[in-house]
């Protein structure tokens, strides 16, 4: 990996959510930025006080919203700002990672790492490696799209005909709503249309 930026191999750009601790990894990521290190821009960082605060619910929520990959990162063991938060987090993630795998979510989509405040280079490598790996795995819509699967017993599933409701045409509705109000008020043109035409 080293210093090069990860090169895109397909059109797919993964969306990665990173949950990082305030004291080590966030500061490390900040160092990577202020050192002007080149790294993939696919990662959205969410800063938390400590890895001990990173609940499995956060990871699930990110996947629900369509994240393709996750990074969880914090202080090295024995370096926790709160003495033991990362040790507790490590135990929880041992269970969480294997349980997710058992339920069919590929653990390669989640990177766990320790990145200290001085390891800007390591953060760059973690980001680039994760982006490359998740890009190769492809988009992860499976979890997000679970909601669209018909439940057994639903009207669709048991073949009940559902009457088609015509969608209200948005363009005509907005024109109808805007034209009388524009005409009904004073003669001065609406600021947006005036700005657009001039």
């Amino acid at each position: 990996m080293g210093r090069e930026m990860s090169e895109p191999t397909t059109d797919f750009e993964p969306r990665i959510t990173a949950f990082v601790c305030n004291w080590c990894t966030y500061t490390g990521a900040d160092l990577a930025g202020t050192s002007r290190m080149h790294m993939a821009s696919n990662v959205r960082i969410i800063r938390l006080p400590c890895t001990g605060r990173i609940d499995a619910l956060f990871v699930i929520k990110a996947l629900e919203h369509g994240a393709d990959g996750i990074i969880v990162s914090g202080c090295h063991p024995a370096d926790c700002h709160y003495t033991a938060g990362n040790y507790h987090a490590r135990r929880r993630f041992i269970v969480f990672r294997e349980l997710m795998n058992f339920m069919g979510i590929n653990p390669d989509r989640i990177t766990f790492s320790w990145v200290s405040a001085g390891e800007g280079g390591k953060w760059r490598d973690v980001v680039n490696e994760t982006v490359t790996r998740v890009r190769a795995l492809g988009p992860f819509d499976a979890y997000h799209e679970l909601a669209e699967r018909p439940s057994p017993g639903s009207a669709v599933e048991i073949g009940v005909p559902i009457p088609e409701v015509p969608e209200p045409s948005r363009s005509t509705a907005s024109e109808d709503a805007s034209s009388p109000s524009a005409a009904g008020e004073d003669a001065s043109p609406a600021p947006t249309s005036a700005g657009g035409e001039s």
Partner: peptide
């Protein structure tokens, strides 16, 4: 609870 040497082979 935790141990200082819990396994962390999955953490980079």
């Amino acid at each position: 609870d935790f141990l200082a040497d819990d396994h962390e082979d999955f953490i980079v």
